[in-house]
């Protein structure tokens, strides 16, 4: 039996919205540790890893490890039927072929349940090692989303260059070029607006903007995004979900033509 209750049900909807454009079908892994998913996009260019710890739920029960294969698009459609302030409960039997989503309105006046059929999905699990990155930038997630969107009007790729003073995002295209530099600054009153650069050595890597724009769909999950880079390694774009876990995206840098 798997049962998980989340007062802020809307969190799961935001998570689905941040994954469904990249991944069609995937397995949610339920264990006593929590609720997790690892999946590559269909072209195997990027990897998503999301994790919600069991202690972040209001109630969490998982008697046996369970892998729930779902169409993310269909699960997102169901979660769209949940009210913004609804409490969400997920339930699945150990040997069952479906998962039930129950939505309770805050005043308990409306209770609905939606059942989603599960699918058998063959998924390849990759081991993600802990890495010390050359540079890690923490910045407002909305700022990162805006930069990726704005630069997409000019080019297809972005060069992200980190120095101790700031992080520069650059692109070029047929119509011209663009640069946006974000400088590190702290704000005691508004920590969500600060830019923190933790740099061991300068690093500059090029990435496909199309993927970064997909990652930025996670912006509603967190005020801040953490971008970690090392030479010739995939970038990690991580959104922390307060008191619960994170969603992290991995993307390999482009090699110069």
């Amino acid at each position: 039996m798997f049962e998980a209750r989340l007062t802020q049900g809307v969190l799961l909807r935001k998570l689905l919205d941040s994954m469904k454009d990249l991944v069609q079908d995937a397995n949610f892994d339920c264990s006593s540790t929590g609720f997790a998913l690892q999946a590559m996009d269909s072209s195997h260019v990027s990897l998503i890893h999301m994790q919600l710890r069991s202690d972040g739920f209001d109630h969490f029960r998982c008697d046996r490890n369970l892998s729930m294969g779902v169409s993310l698009n269909n699960m997102a459609k169901i979660l769209k039927c949940m009210g913004n302030d609804d409490v969400l409960t997920m339930k699945a039997e150990d040997q069952g072929d479906s998962v039930t989503f129950m939505f309770e309105s805050a005043n308990q006046e409306r209770i609905s349940d939606f059942e989603l059929k599960l699918m058998d999905i063959d998924s390849e699990q990759l081991g993600i090692p802990d890495t010390d990155y050359s540079a890690t930038v923490k910045m407002p997630s909305a700022e990162f989303a805006r930069i990726c969107k704005d630069l997409s009007t000019i080019g297809d790729t972005v060069l992200i260059a980190v120095t101790k003073d700031g992080v520069r995002f650059s692109t070029t295209g047929d119509i011209g070029s663009a640069n946006v530099t974000v400088r590190s600054h702290s704000n005691v009153d508004k920590p969500e607006e600060q830019v923190v650069i933790d740099m061991q050595e300068p690093v500059a890597l090029t990435f496909a903007l199309r993927y970064l724009n997909s990652f930025a769909k996670a912006t509603p999950l967190s005020n801040q995004v953490m971008i970690s880079m090392s030479k010739e390694l995939p970038v990690v774009v991580q959104y922390r979900i307060e008191d619960m876990g994170h969603i992290s995206y991995y993307l390999a840098p482009k090699i110069e033509d």
Partner: peptide, 14 residues
């Protein structure tokens, strides 16, 4: 995508 490496080559299979 030209010049784009896949992600699998960076991580070991579990």
């Amino acid at each position: 995508l030209p010049g784009q490496r896949g992600i699998k080559s960076f991580f070991a299979k579990k």
